[in-house]
Design a protein around this nucleic acid. Structure first.
Length: 110
DNA sequence: GAGATGACGGGCT
DNA sequence: AAGCCCGCCATCT
């Protein structure tokens, strides 16, 4: 459902994630914070949950505050996300975590 | 209109 | 140290 005259929080999430450069990641909480809702991390996750496959949004660059992937969906997408990130230059350790202090992107950091 | 959901986060046990 | 519980927000059915 598109609401051009009333863009939902989702649309803002997509737009922000779309600005994340390759080799960088961002946390749900940080995205929510940048959108003005520091506690809306859940809503952010929900946004990507409803993310249309046709969108050019690099959802895989969005991870939790731990620098890991929480995807419950049977690995297929979770594993894909890790592969995509490693392919862009974001190394994951055996715990499935990456160094947020180094790879967490920030619009003000650019 | 109300209830249930969800890729989270932080705090407490 | 790890795990469990609660709470937050926005959207969806």
């Amino acid at each position: 459902m598109e609401r051009a005259s009333a863009p939902t929080f989702y649309d803002r999430v997509y737009e922000l994630v779309r600005q994340v450069p390759a080799g960088r990641v961002i946390t749900y909480g940080h995205v929510a914070l940048l959108l003005g809702a520091p506690a809306a991390a859940r809503a952010v996750g929900y946004a990507l949950h409803n993310l249309p496959a046709a969108s050019d949004v690099p959802w895989w660059r969005v991870i939790n505050v731990r620098g890991a992937i929480s995807l419950k969906g049977r690995g297929s997408e979770a594993d894909l996300q890790r592969i995509l990130l490693e392919r862009e230059g974001v190394p994951f350790d055996e715990s499935g975590r990456c160094d947020l202090a180094t790879f967490r992107w920030d619009p003000a950091d650019t």
